[in-house]
Amino acid sequence: MSADIAVLGAGMHPWGKWGRSFVEYGRAAARAALADAGLEWADVQSIVGADTVRSGYPGYVAGATFAQALGWQGARVTSVYAACASGAQAIGAARAQILAGLADVVLVVGADAAPKGFFAPAGGDRPDDPDWLRFRLLGATNPAYFALYARRRMAVHGDTLEDFAQVKVKNAAAGALNPLARYRRPVTAEEVADSAVVADPLRLLDICATSDGGAALVLGSMDFARSRGVADPVRIRAVSTVTPTYPRTVLDLPDIATDSVTAVRPAPGSFRASIARAAYEEAGLGPGDLSLAEVYDLSTALELEWYEDIGLCAEGEGAKLVREGVTALGGRVPVNTSGGLASFGEAVPAQAIAQVCELTWQLRGTAGDRQVPRARAGITANQGLFGHGSAVVAVR
C-alpha cells in the first residue's frame, strides 16, 4: 500500500496581531481549507487540532475546541502538543488515521493568539527540561539562545553580520509577495544593521516576532482523491517526528567523550540533521530532488544552520548559498518562499501546518508572484522544545 496521502485543501488566516481568540483564527483557516478542497465540514470524518498552551483549557484540547467551533457533527477528534512541532505531529496523526483506514478525510488545524514579547515558559516547573533550565537558571530567552548559535557560526565558519542580514532581505522580499504574511515590505541590509541590538550579534530584524494566525489542511486517502476526480494531487510522502539520540540531546555541538558516554555510539550529525534525514529516508528522496524548502527561521543565523541540516550544502557553507542567491526566489533551491517567520512571526501550533500550505501552493503552481517554476518536491523543517522533530516531504 502506498504511504502517500493527498492534500485536498489548504487554508490560512492571515498572520498579525489581531487581539482575538485563537479559535477564530483556526475556524477561519479550516473553512478556507474546506473551500479549497471543495468539501463541507460534514464530509470530514476526523479532526486533529494542534494545541496551544497559552490559551487555557480550550487550547489544551484544540481538536475538540475547533470541532465545537465548526459545529459538532460526530467526527473523530484528536489533540496533540509538541511545541513548535505540534503542526507536524498533527499532520502525522492524521496521516496515520488515513493509512490505517480509519478515515478517508481528516481536517488538521492549528492556531495561536501569541502574547507580546518573548515567549515565557509555560506549564509549571520542569527541572529535567534543558529549555526550562535555560530560561530559569541562565535567563537565556530564545533570542539569547539564537545569538549564541550566531556567535558560534561567526567564530567557526566565518559568517558575518552581513550574511545574516541577507537572510532577512531574502525572506522579506518573498513575504512582500504573500498576502497572508504579517510583514509585507522589502527590507534592506542597512535597515537590518540599523535595527536595535536584541542579543548581540542579532538585531531586531534578525529575530522573528510572535504573532496571531491559523493554518489548516484537508488531507485524504489517494482513493478518496481519485473518487473526487483529483488525479494528480499534491501528496505528503513523509512525516518525520524523530527525537534526539543520546548523548547528543541538548546542544548540537561536537561531542566531548567522557567515561559516561564512550560506550554509546552517537548518530552522525546534529539533531536537526537527523530530522531531515529520517524524512528523506521515508520519502525515498534526497536534497538533490528538492525544488524548494520551508525552514524555521527563528533567527537569520538559524536559517543558515538549516541549509546544512537539510543537506543543501556541507557544514559551514550556508552563508555561501545566501551570497550566491541559491536560496532566494529564482535561485536553484529557494528557501522560505512564503517569507518564513521573518515575514509571518510565530504562531506556534500553526506554523508547521502553514509550511505545508506553502508547499502545497507551490507544487500546485498557484503561488502567484513567488512561484517556483516546475516545483515537484519540497521539504519543511523545524524543531520543537524538549526534543520534538518536525519535517514533512510533499511531492507532485
Rank of each mutant, 00 (worst) to 15 (best):
A75R: 07
L359T: 01
G9S: 06
S390Q: 08
T141M: 11
S79K: 04
T243F: 12
E305Q: 12
G286N: 07
W132G: 07
A263M: 13
I256K: 14
Q355D: 10
I91A: 12
Q97M: 15
K17L: 01
W18T: 01
N336H: 09
Q362W: 00
R182I: 04
A100K: 09
P14R: 06
R272T: 15
P130K: 12
A279T: 03
L161H: 14
A238N: 11
E40W: 06
A283K: 09
A90G: 14
G330Q: 10
L385Q: 10
L321Y: 02
Y149D: 07
V372N: 07
P268F: 15
Y296T: 06
E281M: 09
K116W: 13
A231D: 13
Y81K: 07
T141D: 11
V295A: 05
A263G: 14
A96R: 15
G26T: 00
A301M: 03
Y307R: 08
A267R: 13
E324P: 05
R126I: 13
D255L: 15
G139R: 10
G110Y: 03
P58K: 01
L363G: 05
I379T: 05
Q97V: 12
A120E: 15
I98M: 11
T360M: 05
N171F: 11
Y280W: 11
R332P: 01
V44D: 00
T380M: 04
D159I: 11
L290T: 02
A64Y: 09
A215R: 01
R374H: 13
C208N: 02
H157G: 13
